[in-house]
Design a binder for these strands. Structure first.
Lengths: 175, 175
DNA sequence: TATTGTTATACTCTATAACTATA
DNA sequence: TATAGTTATAGAGTATAACAATA
């Protein structure tokens, strides 16, 4: 079989492939930007979660972030050592650690907000405001249809690799 | 600072976040579909690359796929043991292994093409053909603007995690 | 006994470096 | 000596399971 027979339709040219490609790119670009704050994306996500709902237990945070409680320990450890998070004992139930932002942590949160907005603008710089809204609306419909709760993404946890491999330049001709 | 101040704009609601979210979802969905053929996405990508350009060396394939030559060895090993790929010695330069699809490999390639098309249809099922094309056009412009060669994606290799963490349902209100 | 948090262990994936065989 | 392929080693990241403290 010839290559053009093998995948005549659009494996690497279809919308699903573009979504995979751009999703990867967006995640990488965000990781690079957030690295300027000496943060990883998971760390930024944890800070954001704590900022939104201060004083929650690590169990609650783990459930919200969709990660194992054991993973949260190391994350909180690192951010606590850097003085961005605080563990506070709960007098009512001393098993719980209420996680709060420190003052420094709140300052970093403001930085994260700026970085996120810059990131969004950079990724979508090719589109004007109307087009961005158009794209947003289409993506939101796909996300809803696919059962993705807006604001909650899978988290790249069980991800092994990519879409239809990495076809590359040469393949474009046929795809 | 209150959460709504911290990220007033759109960190988890903007187009960039949606791209990350849907990109992850599309990659996972493809991985699940291709697993029905007992393949991983990297394996499918390698088969596709070989199908498009048969007889190339592992070095050439590694460069095209954007991966280290050492990683390709194990990939080719597995697919050769399953009888889908063949290593053929090059009489001219016996250091090279020309990689070819076997007959069984060509049959699997046809399956991959079907799976890829089904995957694309499923992911975009919320949109009618005109809307799919609209989305495709917008994504293609963003991809070009960001310097991504169509058909070649990063490959989820250096990916550490996700966009702005995993904000989750509760955050939607503010985001 | 159940639950929160922690620690220890193992497993997967990938990257780096050393080795061989050919040239 | 330089290159293609291979093997071996190690590193990052994550998941699983056992453990200690508290309820």
């Amino acid at each position: 079989m010839s290559p053009s027979e093998a995948d005549s339709a659009l494996p690497a040219g279809g919308g699903a492939f573009l979504l995979t490609q751009l999703g990867t790119h967006a995640a990488q670009a965000f990781a690079e930007r957030i690295a300027e704050l000496d943060l990883t994306p998971p760390q930024a996500g944890l800070l954001r979660a704590v900022a939104f709902g201060p004083g929650r237990s690590q169990q609650a945070l783990a459930q919200q972030l969709g990660t194992a409680p054991t993973r949260l320990v190391a994350l909180v450890d690192g951010l606590e050592q850097r003085g961005l998070l605080e563990r506070r004992r709960n007098p009512g139930d001393r098993r719980l650690h209420a996680v709060h932002l420190s003052v420094a942590g709140e300052a970093v949160m403001a930085d994260i907000g700026r970085v996120s907005r810059d990131h969004n603008d950079a990724v979508l710089s090719a589109l004007d405001p109307a087009e961005r809204e158009q794209l947003r609306a289409l993506l939101a419909r796909v996300a809803t249809d696919r059962g993705l709760t807006p604001g909650v993404h899978p988290g790249y946890r069980t991800l092994s690799a990519a879409d239809p491999g990495s076809p590359s330049r040469e393949d474009r001709a046929t795809y």
